[in-house]
Amino acid sequence: MTYKLISNGKTLKGETTTEAVDAATAEKVFKQYANDNGVDGEWTYDDATKTFTVTE
């Protein structure tokens, strides 16, 4: 399945996607992506749209 990340960081804003077997796997990928880009904030997940959002 395709999962989307919306980043509302102070230094990184935008969207990216990943293919993953489940939401937990996608979350690990996205949290590593955010960490690699210096984004640390509040996370939410919408199962209906398969979208994670991180806001700093």
Rank of each mutant, 00 (worst) to 15 (best):
Q32P: 01
V54H: 02
G9S: 12
T53W: 10
D40S: 13
G9A: 12
K13E: 07
T51V: 06
E15I: 14
V54F: 14
T11L: 12
K31S: 03
S7I: 15
V21M: 13
T2I: 14
D46C: 08
T17W: 14
T16L: 14
K4T: 14
A20D: 02
G9I: 14
N8G: 05
L12C: 14
N35H: 15
G41W: 05
Y45F: 06
A20I: 02
T2F: 08
F52D: 01
A20R: 01
D22H: 03
A20M: 02
T18E: 03
A23P: 08
D47R: 06
T17K: 08
V21T: 11
D40N: 13
N37I: 11
I6M: 07
D22I: 02
D36V: 10
A34C: 14
T51E: 03
N37V: 09
I6H: 05
T25I: 07
T44P: 00
W43H: 00
T18C: 15
T17N: 05
D36N: 09
T49A: 05
E56S: 09
V54C: 03
T16A: 10
K10I: 13
K4S: 06
K31L: 08
S7R: 05
K50N: 07
E19P: 04
E56V: 11
E27H: 10
N37K: 11
A20Q: 07
S7Y: 15
G38F: 06
G14Y: 13
T53L: 06
V54K: 01
K28Y: 08
V21A: 12
V21N: 10
Q32S: 08
E27A: 09
V54M: 06
F30V: 01
N35Q: 14
A24N: 08
T11H: 13
E27D: 04
N35V: 13
T2V: 13
D46S: 05
T55L: 08
Q32V: 07
G41D: 01
T49D: 04
V54I: 13
S7W: 15
V39W: 15
F30M: 02
T49L: 06
M1S: 14
L5R: 00
D36F: 08
E42L: 12
G9W: 06
M1H: 14
W43E: 00
K28N: 07
L5H: 01
T49F: 04
N35D: 11
A20W: 02
K50E: 02
K31P: 01
S7T: 15
V54E: 01
D47W: 08
L5W: 04
L12I: 11
L12F: 14
T18F: 12
G41T: 02
N8F: 14
D47L: 06
T16H: 13
N37F: 10
K28H: 08
T55P: 00
K31I: 06
V54R: 00
D22F: 02
V21L: 13
T11D: 08
T44G: 06
D40V: 14
K13C: 15
A24Y: 09
D40L: 13
A26K: 00
T25S: 12
A48N: 11
T2C: 14
V21R: 11
A24S: 09
N35M: 15
V21G: 08
T53A: 04
A20N: 02
M1V: 13
Y45Q: 00
E15S: 09
N8V: 14
L5N: 02
L12Q: 08
F30G: 02
V29C: 09
A26N: 00
N8E: 09
K4P: 03
T51F: 02
D47S: 11
T17M: 09
K50G: 05
E56Y: 09
T2G: 04
Q32F: 05
L12K: 08
F52L: 01
T16N: 06
K13D: 06
S7C: 15
Y3P: 04
E56T: 09
V39E: 03
F52I: 01
D47F: 07
G38R: 05
Q32T: 08
T11A: 10
Y33S: 02
N37C: 11
L5V: 03
N8C: 15
T44L: 08
T49N: 08
D46R: 02
E42W: 11
D46N: 09
F30W: 01
T53R: 07
K4M: 07
T18Q: 05
A26I: 02
T53D: 01
A26E: 01
T44M: 08
F52M: 01
E56W: 10
F52G: 00
T17I: 10
E19F: 15
T11M: 12
G38N: 09
T44W: 08
G38W: 05
A24C: 13
V39G: 03
E56I: 12
T16Q: 09
Y3L: 02
V29D: 03
T44Q: 09
D46K: 02
E56R: 05
T2A: 06
A23D: 05
K50D: 02
D40C: 14
